[in-house]
Nucleic acid binder design. Structure first.
Lengths: 233, 233
DNA sequence: AATTTCGTCTGGCCTGACCACCTGATGGTT
DNA sequence: AACCATCAGGTGGTCAGGCCAGACGAAATT
């Protein structure tokens, strides 16, 4: 006998769901304009206030953009809108940081594996450039965080999987936003820039050699090092 | 000369920001109750409708939960809502099925690995129940899709990493929506339910034996089988 | 002591009004 | 003909007030 609590959906939630469904089915695409609030109100037989609540929710999620005088448009979701809730979760619960690192390891391990199998000459050139840049950073004592990020993104590109790339980007940005201080320290602790560079180089060599297992291993070791350093608090 | 478009913030956006700041500063914690809509309206010197719009937005982001008759509470936001923007973004991106499967392989491989290391007795019991259910489905010729999903979720739970679980769920949901027809066929093709059951069982045995590598291997083989079947078109 | 009722508070939704901004059409000026 | 100003009609933004359903605690009843 399975009796579960009954929870009727609020009107604004229903509206949100309908619009999401329209997007999911491809009936609404980025750039498309939604009917006006007044029209939605009529067609849905609800008050305009309820429509507005729904649109506020969708805007907060980054699904739509509301332009006064013009209308309401479906938009491509900016990465910032994706990252923000995750970053807030991190603020509230530091335990989530280790969980994110584990997730990152899974994603980047797979990306490195696929990159080793799929990387073409232009991918490898790109990584080489970035390694040079990291080396310059090393010599000049610059932080190197920028090139570091771009190196990881280049791996994601070489993997030829945009889902992985997006997930990696999301997780990476979340961490960057939420763990600013400890990330800075990662780059400023004596000896770390050299170690990071060596690790990046190792990853690159494995990818260049088209050795997927070695690539995955190398990136996981790198991320474990990063995890250890981030835990020193 | 940097001239940027001027955009004044809407009142509901200001309210959202204030509440977020309170949370970010630690003045509001999960479980804390916000003032009532009427009180917020007075204290902020805005209309109640604007307050409601802000609360709708915060609820959509998973930051708060609204309980009619009780009030509005800050919520521990490690729930499904934090990945809503990501889920929408994946839907909008319209990725190829294979890309979703590869991402899923990365996430579920790691989840199985961690589950094998962390699963406790209650986790194993849960999986056993679900295997029984799948066996019933097999005997009755029922689709088994529901128990399948729940089995994968149980693995995610046993991994003790809610970020990973959420990401898995998001990717899995995106796939389910994108591949409605071919997914059905996966369960209805002669011989497949038996194979799926055997694979699920293998995954379970590896987790039960606390063998992380075998668990990862088993789930990746399972997902490769799924990928092959989904490609038959 | 246990149960029921009542009062007060909460959120949910509606209606109507008015304001600011945007866009396109129209008319006037150069 | 091209450009500018004005206007009308549409858009979203916000307000105020009303009423309803649900939740909870206190008071009354059994």
């Amino acid at each position: 006998m399975d009796l579960r609590p009954i929870r009727t959906k609020k009107i604004y939630e229903e509206i949100v769901q309908q619009i999401k469904d329209l997007i999911g089915e491809g009936n609404l695409k980025p750039g498309d304009r939604l009917p006006s609030e007044r029209e939605l109100s009529e067609r849905l037989a609800v008050s305009r206030a309820s429509v507005r609540e729904a649109l506020s929710a969708l805007a907060a999620m980054g699904v739509i953009v509301i332009r006064p005088g013009e209308g309401t448009f479906v938009q491509n979701i900016r990465n910032g809108a994706i990252v923000e809730p995750l970053a807030m979760a991190l603020l509230l619960d530091r335990q989530a940081a280790m969980e994110l690192l584990e997730a990152r390891q899974a994603l980047e391990g797979e990306a490195a594996y696929l990159a080793a199998r799929r990387a073409g000459p232009e991918d490898l050139e790109k990584m080489e450039e970035l390694l040079k840049e990291m080396q310059h950073d090393l010599q000049r004592g610059t932080l190197g965080e920028e090139a570091d990020l771009r190196f990881h993104l280049a791996i994601a590109e070489a993997a030829r999987n945009s889902v992985l790339a997006r997930l990696m980007h999301t997780v990476s940005d979340t961490m960057r936003q939420a763990l600013k201080t400890s990330r800075q320290r990662l780059y400023t602790t004596a000896g770390n820039p050299e170690k990071l560079f060596a690790q990046h180089n190792q990853i690159f060599e494995a990818i260049k050699a088209h050795n997927p297992r070695a690539a995955r291993k190398a990136i996981c070791q790198h991320l474990r090092f990063v995890a250890k350093e981030l835990q020193k608090e």
